[in-house]
């Protein structure tokens, strides 16, 4: 018998009486001002949230960040934003984005309860950019802020297969004596722009 069949057989042999799935239709936590909650939680996990009226305002705000000003290599997936120094489309090997200092990428929506932003590789050829860049800025329409993770999963579909991740703040570790260090392997800073404009 194959291992598959013997494992499944062993499980079936010991399967006990079926229990039902619970309902997920509950009055889950919501907030009077989800954007305010998102901003507070994101700050508590080492990130920053900035609200802007228009996409064009973002470049001015980015210029206020020393890590943006001093970045030698910049990448962006949003036209007109982030002063990219090269075109991502021309890169074939993900290893070649190793030296990106600052990346400006699109996020789909934000979650108020935990400061997370859902990002995918739908418009991004090399998903590694989210994790390899030294500094990360995510851009989200401000109408896309949900209260909690249950609302978040209502928006998600995984049909056809695609990569997606919730990112909540910059990369971090506390593995040395529980001292929090920001910038473990991935981004050392993380800023989320909530924009009035749709894009």
């Amino acid at each position: 018998m194959s291992s598959r069949d013997s494992v499944l057989k062993a499980i079936r042999k010991s399967q006990r009486e079926a229990t039902p799935l619970p309902t997920l239709d509950q009055n889950w936590l919501t907030f009077d001002d989800p954007i305010d909650q998102f901003t507070t939680v994101l700050e508590s996990v080492g990130g920053k949230c900035i609200q802007v009226k228009s996409l064009s305002e973002i470049n001015d705000r980015l210029a206020e960040f020393p890590q943006f000003e001093s970045a030698n290599v910049r990448a962006s997936t949003i036209e007109g934003l982030g002063l990219p120094t090269f075109s991502l489309d021309e890169i074939d090997d993900p290893h070649d984005v190793e030296n990106v200092d600052f990346a400006v990428l699109a996020g789909e929506f934000a979650v108020a309860e935990n400061g997370a932003v859902w990002v995918t590789d739908e418009t991004l050829k090399h998903r590694v950019l989210h994790f390899i860049t030294q500094h990360l800025a995510l851009i989200i329409p401000n109408k896309n802020v949900v209260n909690n993770m249950h609302e978040a999963y209502k928006r998600l579909s995984f049909e056809g297969g695609r990569f997606g991740t919730f990112i909540s703040g910059p990369s971090k570790t506390a593995d040395i004596e529980q001292s929090l260090v920001i910038g473990a392997h991935g981004p050392r800073s993380h800023v989320v722009f909530l924009v009035d404009d749709a894009f």
Binding site: V41, S44, V45, V111, E113, N114, G115, A116, D121, R127, F131, M149, F158, G161, R162, F163, G164, T165, F166, I167, S168, G169, P170, S171, K172, G186
Partner: peptide, 14 residues
């Protein structure tokens, strides 16, 4: 923590 920094969903290979 309210959530881990990265909660990555892999659906098929890239």
């Amino acid at each position: 923590q309210p959530i881990t920094t990265y909660s990555s969903h892999f659906h098929g290979p890239r």
